[in-house]
Write a protein that binds this DNA or RNA. Structure first.
Length: 639
RNA sequence: GGUCCCGUAGCUCAGCUGGAUAGAGCAUCUCCCUUCUAAGGAGAGGGUCUUAGGUUCGAAUCCUAACGGGAUCACCA
């Protein structure tokens, strides 16, 4: 039992003994004492005043005396403004740090035979474009969450669902067929995912031209807007005005309706989209030529993704492909249709009615029988639960899909899967740039590969300038540059509460000073440097410290922070938040740097004190390393 | 319009299971490298915690409303 819990139960018995009253957890408040006050743990006595019928001071004294008399590790107490601060015996913390010093995996809980199996889905890319900044947040969160879940004693399976089919894939295929002239990654020297992405963009461009043409041709059919000169501008301004406080007048409402109708008509009747749909139909019918092209282009993309994943340092235990799972989903939908769980409309499309749950009707199969996004998620879920004995399913997917996962959960539940309603949508916020949202059409999307490369370059330049890696081979140094670059990027993204939208400022992200990953990595390297120096000087140091040595406040603070790490890991696991770990690692590094600044270690003459600072430094180094590991960040020996 | 999320220093973010004087970093201004890594440390300025009510001994934190920003409500994924 932790000392905190011991104090809590002492408090409960104290109230029972002193005032003959039982109190609950909420009334028994034990928290860590503010840093600027004397004491280790604080008992808040305010909630107990009604019971004690005494002043905060008197109540504090009575409880303080009781705890001091009955809890061995409590040495003293003080009362400030009605808060009872408990002071532990000096050697309590020193014994604790000796225990910690012996544990390599300090802070982690190992999984047992009967530990729950958690499957975490993340990444889930579309095979029609390369990974960008948004995917980076997803991948880093998913990877970190899986490490945090593992550290909390779960068996974890990292999984990925590759969205390798659907109309969006057909768009890039079609564009490549039409305008690609047989270009390949080899012939162009371009990464496969980028090459395919280019054709997706090309499709969009040509498609837009066709839409504009149709609109121009058909404009005269729509009386409300027939004299419009700039359709796009009108449509946009009407939509904006509808959203604004002002609202639309009758004429404008009619115009907007006409605009919407015409735009929809154009979008659905442009020759390119018709061709793409035909291609999707052929693909689902396994048309030989379409299938061969699809396979080839997908291979290009996978090869590209592999490079990006490796660059980011993430991986998966099991990858599912939508092209394998959508038919399973379709069968399940059809099965549900037979049982009357879903219903078919006259045109042949299949729907689920969720109006009793406060949602609306949702499409599960199109009228032409092809699958939608939801269909494949149903199939994927089925396959996964067939493959693994999953206790908890976590989907790392952006918050723009909150609604989708609400529906998925209910649909799975309707289909009779008891895990349906328990699925966890780990919903994270969007990544924005200082100038606003990323827009692929405006070329403001930050490419994942480019970003990592740029950061490695910055790390290299900076390191060379500082010259801290002299003596390393080029290969060794390059490893460190990469470590620092990724440390900066990962920490920058993971330190923010995942649920919130975040702003990614490229300039700030490559800053290596202050509250950054490299700051924490630097602290680790600094600590390792002490040990190297010690070895050079022939100083031998024991792994344990003398528990009767005197420590000052700073040293005590460090021990307290280290000993709190397991609680932090548990909290991060419970709240699914790498940010909790990131903030802790920063606080610990900062605290250590202050200690380092005004405490000498190797030149300290008192052997016991030197020993204590040495063991302390070692424990800090280890804890930083273990914390950063949970973020997927490695720490260097030198930097 | 319905539903959901967010609003803390000039900027980016902590703090939110109610608790003591609301914290970091960046940016601005001062200091500190002849002893273990200055990618560091110390200090200064900078706040009606969007606003208004409510609950409470106590509210940045919980509740309600307003204002501001975002997401979503497709035979897109």
């Amino acid at each position: 039992m932790s000392i905190e819990n011991q104090l809590r139960s002492r408090l409960i018995t104290a109230v029972k003994e002193l005032y003959n009253q039982d109190i609950n957890e909420k009334q028994a408040q034990v928290q860590i004492t503010r840093k600027d006050l004397k004491g280790d743990f604080t008992i808040v006595v305010f909630p107990l005043l009604k019971i004690s019928k005494k002043s905060p001071e008197d109540t504090g004294i009575e409880i303080g005396e009781y705890i001091k008399a009955n809890e061995e590790s409590v040495a003293a107490y003080n009362i400030v403004k009605g808060f009872l601060n408990i002071e532990l015996a000096a050697d309590y913390w020193l014994n604790l740090i000796n225990e910690i010093a012996l544990k390599d995996q300090f802070g982690y809980v190992e999984a047992k035979e009967d530990s729950p199996l958690m499957m975490i889905e993340y990444s889930s890319p579309n095979t029609n474009k390369p990974l960008h900044l948004g995917h980076i947040r997803n991948n880093l969160l998913g990877y970190s969450l899986s490490r945090i879940a593992t550290a909390n004693g779960n068996k974890v399976v990292k999984t990925n669902i590759v969205n390798d089919r659907g109309i969006h894939i057909c768009k890039s295929m079609l564009a490549w067929k039409k305008w690609g002239e047989g270009i390949t990654p080899e012939s162009s020297g371009k990464k496969g995912d980028h090459l395919v992405g280019d054709f997706y963009v090309k499709f969009d461009k040509e498609y837009k031209i066709e839409i504009a043409q149709i609109i121009a041709d058909k404009l005269s059919d729509y009386s409300a807007i027939k004299d419009t000169e700039d359709f796009g501008a009108l449509h946009k301004s009407l939509k904006a005005k509808k959203k604004s406080k002002e609202g639309l007048n009758e004429v404008e409402a009619a115009q907007l309706e006409a605009c919407d109708e015409l735009a929809k008509y154009a979008e659905n009747n442009a020759p390119l989209i018709l061709e793409a749909r035909e291609m999707l139909r052929k693909w689902e019918a396994k048309d030989e030529e379409v299938y061969a092209d699809w396979k080839m282009m997908n291979e290009w993309v996978y090869a590209g993704f592999d490079v990006s994943y490796k660059k980011l340092g993430v991986d998966f235990d099991k990858i599912y492909y939508e092209s394998d799972t959508y038919t399973v989903g379709r069968d399940m939908v059809l099965g549900g249709l037979e049982k009357g769980t879903f219903n078919k409309r006259e045109d042949g499309s299949v729907w689920v009615d969720l109006s009793d749950k406060g949602l609306d009707e949702k499409l599960l199969l199109r009228k032409d029988g092809t699958s939608v996004y939801m269909t494949q998620d149903i199939g994927t879920a089925k396959l996964r639960f067939d493959d693994y004995d999953i206790d908890k399913m976590v989907y790392v997917v952006g918050n723009e899909q909150d609604y989708h996962f609400k529906v998925l959960s209910l649909v799975l539940d309707k289909l009779g899967f008891n895990w349906g309603k328990d699925l966890q949508h780990f919903s994270y916020g969007m990544v924005e740039l200082p100038q606003g949202k990323m827009k692929s059409r405006e070329g403001t999307v930050v490419d994942a590969d480019d970003l990592v490369d740029a950061m490695v370059n910055t790390a290299r330049d900076m390191s060379k300038e500082l010259g801290k890696l002299d003596g390393y081979t080029d290969e060794e140094a390059e490893k460190v540059y990469k470590m620092i670059a990724l440390g900066a990027l990962k920490y920058f993204i993971l330190k923010v509460d995942p649920r919130k939208n975040m702003t990614f400022n490229p300039e700030e992200s490559i800053d290596f000073n202050g509250n950054t990953g490299p700051f924490i990595q630097y602290t680790h390297a600094r600590i390792q440097s002490i040990f190297r120096k010690a070895a050079d000087q022939g100083v031998t140091v024991d792994e344990q410290l003398n528990t009767s040595v005197a420590i000052d406040e700073k040293e005590n603070n460090l021990i307290k922070m280290i000993s709190n790490f397991p609680n932090i890991v548990a909290e991060a696991g419970k709240t699914y938040s790498p940010a909790v770990i990131a903030n802790y690692a920063y606080d610990l590094a900062k605290e250590y740097n202050q200690f380092y600044h005004d405490h000498y270690i190797l030149t300290e003459e008192d052997k016991d004190i030197m020993q204590m600072r040495f063991v302390l430094s070692k424990s800090v180094g280890k804890t930083i390393k273990n914390a950063m590991f949970l973020l997927g960040v490695d720490v260097p020996e030198k930097m």
